[in-house]
Design a binder for these strands. Sequence first.
RNA 1: GGCCUCGUUGUACAAUGGAUAGUAUAAGAGUUUCCGAAGCUCCAGACCCAGGUUCGAUUCCUGGCGAGGCCA
Length: 590
Amino acid sequence: MSILHILQENTIKSLGELYEQSFSENDFQVSQTKPEFEGDYTIVLFSLVKRLKLSPDDIGKQLAENLVKNSGYFTAYNIIKGFLNLTVKNEYWLEVLAGNHNDICFGKHPMNGQKVMVEYSSPNTNKPLHLGHLRNNFLGWSVAEILKANGCEVFKSCIVNDRGIHICKSMLAWQMFGNGQTPHSTQTKGDHFVGEYYVKFNEEYKKQVKELADSGMSEADAEKKAPIMMATQQMLQEWEKGKPEVMDLWKKMNGWVYDGFDVTYKTIGSDFDKTYYESNTYLLGKKIVDEGLKKNVFVKDGDNSVWIDLTNEGLDRKIVQRKDGTSVYITQDIGLAQQKYEEYKIDKSIYVIGDEQNYHMKVLKLIAEKLALPNAENIYHLSYGMVELPSGKMKSREGTVVDADDLVDEMLATSKQHTEELGKVKDFNAGELETLYKTIGLGAMKFYLLRVDPKKKMIFNPEESIDFHGYTGPFVQYTYARIKSILRKEPLLPNASIDTDLLKLEKEILVTLEQYPTMIAQAANELNPSVIASYVFNVAKIFNSFYAEHSVANAETELKKYLRLQLAVMTANVLSSGMQLLGIQVPERM
RNA sequence: GGCCUCGUUGUACAAUGGAUAGUAUAAGAGUUUCCGAAGCUCCAGACCCAGGUUCGAUUCCUGGCGAGGCCA
């Protein structure tokens, strides 16, 4: 139990004794004491003033006296303008340190029996991954790890959008312009290869539309009547009927794409416990429509299309099956939601999907609830904002989309350049250097994309992300490597006793380290890795400022040296653990 | 047109309704015979506007203005 909880419980108890009423933790606020004041934790007294009809000073004084006398955890207090600052006894902090400094699992919570699925990444197979996918992948992976650390059993899943008109576009363009070329024959990564034909399709399409429009056809008609588009529509129908040549082509080209994706996923560290393919799940929609009609959740219109009325929920009437009997995305998604539950018996289902789908996901959840799917209320859309560049928004039409692989390459090159400029790694061999560049480059990118609240749109600045100064991944990695270096030179040896006199900065490190379990719980609760990112950075910063002034080597006494080494070990463990939750590689040297 | 999200220093990000609105960068001033200066110390700069609720509002509510997204 953290000192925060201890303080809350004792405060509730003390208030009860003093004023003979019952209190809860919502009746007052506890926060960490600001550095410029004396004390470790602060109770804000204003919320109690009205209820007790006493002045903040009186309440503070009575409460503090009681806490100091009875709890056994607090040694001193002061009251400033309605804020009660309490000092926790040194023995408590030293016990935390002695008991946990060597525990590499410190901060992680025991299994709680909850099963959670995190669906993320979810690519289309007609083009390669881009910058937006990177935010998605890093978020999904990190959230899954954070939930595990918080005690959940987690299944990572991915739904591959492997069918539909967009795939057929690439396929048709390859038939027209491919000349039998393959990723192998052109030395191109498979997903990029297929993506090129998607671009070629659009170029040809635009050309044909313009020709038709020039010959007098209306713009709208031209868009429908362009031969290449009609051929694509026909191919989609043939695919749905399972025509062998089309299926073979489809399998071949998707295979190329998967080979490409595998490489990217391996580089960025994404993995999945279960991959779903839309080609297998898109028929689940039909089952759902039947079920919905039976339960009178859906209604059939005169033209045979099926609808759901969500006007009472403040939304629209929404179509769930077209008049030709084909299902729409939303119904397929509900079918898959049901299948996930049946296969894994999950308590909670998290979808990492961009915020442009907020409306879609709201409807999905609502329909699932109306159909009374198990745990429908525990469908959660982890919505994230778009990633923009300093130069502006990414627009596929304008060709300003940043390719994931290209960006990763750029990050590796930059990390190499910066590292070489510093010239600190002369004793590294070629293999170690390559690993290091990857560790730094990817660490920089992950930290930068995760340090922002997921809900908010953000600007990704590649140059700034790989800066070794400031609020960045490399700074945290550097701090870790530096601690490991100190510990190599001066290992921590067992010692019977420890200095009980703490410097203010030593205590600041301890207070911060002790909060790690709370931070994991908060990050899991909010599904927000930025909580961990800012915490880890804070730990690194405090460590640096402390050891700049108070080195291990020059410690005043042996007891001080021992204490500082213990602190260094615990800091390294927390940094390492936190970086792993963010998917960041932990360098022993850099 | 309807619905949703967001406006915080030059820039990028924080802040369960609480202390002097944090942090990082860039700008300015220091700091390497000292365990890693990829560090540390100091300095200066911001809540879109107008109302309302409150002991107290960047936060909650209403209305503007501005940016973005979704739907037909």
